[in-house]
């Protein structure tokens, strides 16, 4: 099986040849090429080269065209802060007060240089690999993006007490999210990862989510012209598995803090799980610890398909060693072949 067949089989809740592995490499590509993170993301050619190299090196079953979370903020005219050893972060929120929301327009994709770089990387990768391996594009959910747009504190005020302005910002973000997702699909992305950390009950209580972010996800995902995966970026997912299924997402990125057996049971036949190695802890793992963690996860989550092994945040930290990543690949090759004996 090639990577595409392996992934599609698992997403269909059937057992492929082995457990698929998604190493979600974004800024880690700069480490692979030995250049600075800022330089790496300045040229889509670097991203293409690193993605192809890392696919081979780590037996990766996807290519990931995620540059950095605040790239959408950059498209809105906001600030991005680059560091030497981690993902670029958003600077000061560009919406300084709630009254400013009425004046905001969604970015025009063709006019945004950073977004165009992502599309160029996507189309170049597509030309290179065809349908052999899935190319995963990324959008921030309209519901979660405001944490970077206006700051978390003001956003909560908006969500709880300023419904009109909240709805207005959601409309703006929804329009952008849909067009950005569809542009990536047109450029060659196979599927879109919808990052929605605020959907997790770790961040927003479920009743509020159901009234807000859930409805927004249903409406937004319905307009995206391709398969979608919802990623909670380390937030727990177990209490909202069925809610995410109802949004139409085919995959759920779950947390290292989720009970793997319980979430596997709840998701069985309904949604494919993606996760849940703890990326932060991974930075201090050795080979033995890596093998133990990977084997344990495969035993608990692998049976019957519907599972893609990955980290739980959607971005491999710079501090994770190559040895650990190679060990993950080796362990999957050794212990991830179907049929897998489930843990007693």
């Amino acid at each position: 099986m090639n990577s595409m067949e392996r992934v599609i089989t698992s997403m269909s809740h059937k057992e492929p040849d082995r457990v698929p592995v998604f190493h979600l490499f974004s800024h880690y590509g700069a480490k692979e090429l030995g250049i600075s993170i800022k330089e790496y993301f300045s040229d889509p050619g670097y991203v293409v080269e690193a993605q192809l190299r890392m696919r081979k090196k780590y037996s990766n079953d996807c290519l990931y065209t995620f540059f950095y979370a605040p790239i959408e903020i950059e498209a809105y005219g906001g600030e991005v802060v680059f560091v030497e050893d981690g993902p670029p972060n958003s600077g000061e929120p560009f919406i300084k007060n709630i009254d400013q929301i009425v004046k905001i327009n969604p970015p025009v994709i063709k006019d945004s240089k950073p977004l165009q770089r992502v599309l160029e990387a996507t189309s170049t990768l597509k030309k290179s690999v065809g349908d052999e391996i899935p190319i995963i594009g990324v959008v921030m959910s309209p519901f979660s993006l405001p944490v970077m747009q206006i700051g978390f504190e003001k956003y909560l005020e908006l969500m709880y007490f300023r419904k009109d302005e909240f709805n207005q910002l959601m409309s703006i973000n929804e329009a952008f999210c849909v067009s950005w997702a569809n542009a990536q699909l047109e450029a060659g992305a196979t599927a879109i990862c919808y990052f929605d950390p605020l959907a997790s009950p770790t961040m927003i209580e479920r009743p509020t989510y159901l009234e807000t972010g859930h409805k927004i996800a249903q409406k937004t995902l319905n307009q995206i012209k391709g398969p979608t995966a919802t990623h909670l970026a380390s937030g727990i997912g177990l209490p909202i598995v069925d809610d995410i299924v109802a949004t139409g997402s085919a995959v759920l990125g779950f947390s290292g803090k989720d009970d793997v057996k319980a979430i596997k049971e709840r998701a069985a036949g309904k949604i494919c799980l993606l996760g849940n190695l703890n990326g932060i802890e991974m930075a201090s793992w050795d080979k033995e610890k890596t093998r133990i963690e990977v084997k344990d996860l495969i035993k608990k989550a692998g049976k019957g398909g519907g599972f893609i092994l990955s980290d739980n945040h959607g971005d491999i930290p710079w501090q994770v060693s190559e040895d650990v990543l190679l060990e993950i690949a080796e362990t999957v090759k050794e212990s991830g072949h179907y049929p897998i004996k489930a843990e007693e």
Partner: peptide, 14 residues
């Protein structure tokens, strides 16, 4: 409640 996953960060904050 937040530590054991019963409550959300937004509830802790508010």
């Amino acid at each position: 409640g937040w530590e054991d996953g019963q409550l959300s960060l937004s509830q802790v904050y508010m």
